[in-house]
Computed example of a mutant assay.
Amino acid sequence: MNLRCKRGTAAALLLLGAAKSMAAGYPDRPVTMLVPFPPGGVADTIARPLAQAMGDKLGQPVVIENKGGAGGAIGIGQAGRAKPDGYTLLMSLSSISILPAADRLLERKPAYQLEQFVPIARITADPTVLVVRADAPYKTLQEFIDAAKSQGSKLSYGSSGIYGTMHVPMEMLQSAAGIKMMHVPFTGAGPAVQALVGGQVDALATGPSSVMQLIQAGRVKALAHWGDEKLDSLPQVPSFKSQGYAISFVQWSGVFALAGTPPAVIEKLRQAVKSVADDPGVQSRIAATGSPLQYLDAPAFDAYWKKDSASLAVAVEKIGKVE
C-alpha cells in the first residue's frame, strides 16, 4: 500500500470513529423538529405530542419550530439546509412530494430536492375532508356542487398554499365535478381554518385533525372525504367515490432527517419513534386529534413515499399550471 492510500485509509477510519463517537453521545442537547406550517394545522397537531414523547425517550427535549409559507416550501427548504447531525428533524405532510413537481412544472428552481431527506417514520395517513361552516346553506355534497355551478367562481376555498395538500384535492374536485371556485391561499391550515370559521372563505379541504374539534363543537360540517373507505373518526361522512366522483387524496405526516446523518443516529431516531408509536398513551393522544396513528417504520415508509411521490407528480402534471 502506498503512502497516499495509507493516508486515505487513515482519514476514513478517523471519520468513521468520529461518526460513531458522535452517535454514541447523541443527543447531548435539544433537538429541533421543524414544522413547515403555522400552529394549528395537521402537521403541528401531530408533531406536538410526538415531539414531547420522543424527548422523553431520547433524554433531551424535542422542540417544535414552526416555519410556514409557500405551502410548506419555506420550512422544508430551511430544514434541507440544516447540518445533517440529527439535531434538526422535519415533520412534513405529503406536500413534501408535491412541491418539487410543481416547481418543475412552473419552470422555477425548487426550494429543495427529495434526495436531501431520509425518512424516519410515517405517523398518520388520512384522507382530506371537505368542510364548510355549519350555517352554510348546503347540507350535502351535491348541494355544494350545485351552488358552485350556479355561482361561478364566487364560491371560495382556502388552502395552505398553491399545490399544497389543501389545494391539490380541491383542484381534483373541481375537475371531476366541472366546477370553478376562487382559490384563497394562506400560510398554513391553521390560518385557512380560521378564515373558514370567520367567513372569509366558503370551504376547504384539510386533514381531520385540524377541524375535528370544530366539527364536534358544531361550528363546521364535513360534506365528503377523499378516501377509499369509511373514516373511523367521521363514520357518517361519505366519500367522493361513493357519490360518483372518482377522486382520492391522502394527507400523510412523517418524520425526516437530513441525508448524510450518521447511520447510528438515524437508528436511534428510528427506535425512539417506534417506541413512541408503540405507546398506548401516545396512540391515544394522536388519535384524539382526529388522525389515528398509522405508523410505518423507515423501510416501509421509504417505499410508500417513493410510490406516493410518483403518483402525486402525475396529479400535479394533470392539474397543470395554476395561479
Rank of each mutant, 00 (worst) to 15 (best):
M33T: 04
A125N: 02
I98K: 13
A203G: 02
I162Y: 03
S284D: 09
L99W: 10
P208G: 07
L204M: 12
W252C: 12
E229T: 15
G290F: 12
A23I: 07
L105A: 02
A224D: 13
R285E: 15
D126F: 01
A217W: 01
V193C: 08
L130H: 01
I98F: 13
Q294T: 05
A259E: 04
Q113C: 10
F186N: 07
L234F: 14
A259Q: 09
P137T: 00
I74A: 11
F144T: 03
G41H: 13
V322K: 05
G77D: 08
L312W: 02
K306Q: 13
E267A: 15
S160D: 14
M170D: 12
G164V: 01
A310I: 04
D297V: 00
Y295T: 07
G158R: 07
T32C: 04
K230S: 12
I46Q: 04
A10E: 14
G281R: 03
K268C: 06
G86K: 00
H167L: 09
V250I: 15
M1N: 13
A224Q: 11
P39R: 11
S233Y: 13
I215K: 11
Y157W: 10
G227Q: 10
K307W: 01
I64L: 15
P263H: 08
T289H: 01
V168W: 06
R81F: 08
L258K: 06
A310F: 06
R285T: 01
K241F: 12
V265P: 01
D232M: 06
M170E: 11
R133S: 05
K180A: 15
A70K: 04
A264H: 14
K139F: 08
Q294P: 00
A24S: 10
V63Y: 10
V220E: 10
R133A: 06
T124H: 02
G40H: 01
V255A: 15
G281V: 06
T206L: 08
A136K: 02
V168F: 08
P39C: 09
L173S: 05
A43P: 02
D85R: 07
K318L: 10
S242K: 02
D56R: 15
D278S: 07
E115N: 10
Q174M: 15
Y112M: 11
V118A: 07
S159T: 15
Q200C: 04
S242D: 00
F117Q: 02
W226I: 03
S156D: 00
A287P: 05
V255E: 08
G260W: 10
K306F: 01
T206V: 15
W305N: 12
V62D: 05
V237F: 11
Q60E: 11
D103I: 04
V322Q: 11
M54N: 06
P100C: 05
G40L: 03
G86P: 01
L296F: 01
S233G: 12
R108V: 10
G71N: 08
E229A: 14
S159H: 09
G244I: 09
Y304M: 12
G260T: 11
S291H: 05
L155W: 03
D146V: 13
E107V: 09
Q213W: 09
D202S: 14
E267R: 15
V31K: 08
G8R: 07
A148P: 03
V63L: 15
K306S: 06
L90Q: 07
D302Q: 13
T289I: 08
A51E: 05
L141P: 04
E171F: 03
S160N: 14
G72C: 10
Q243S: 03
D308P: 02
I247R: 13
G75S: 05
G41F: 12
V35T: 05
L130I: 08
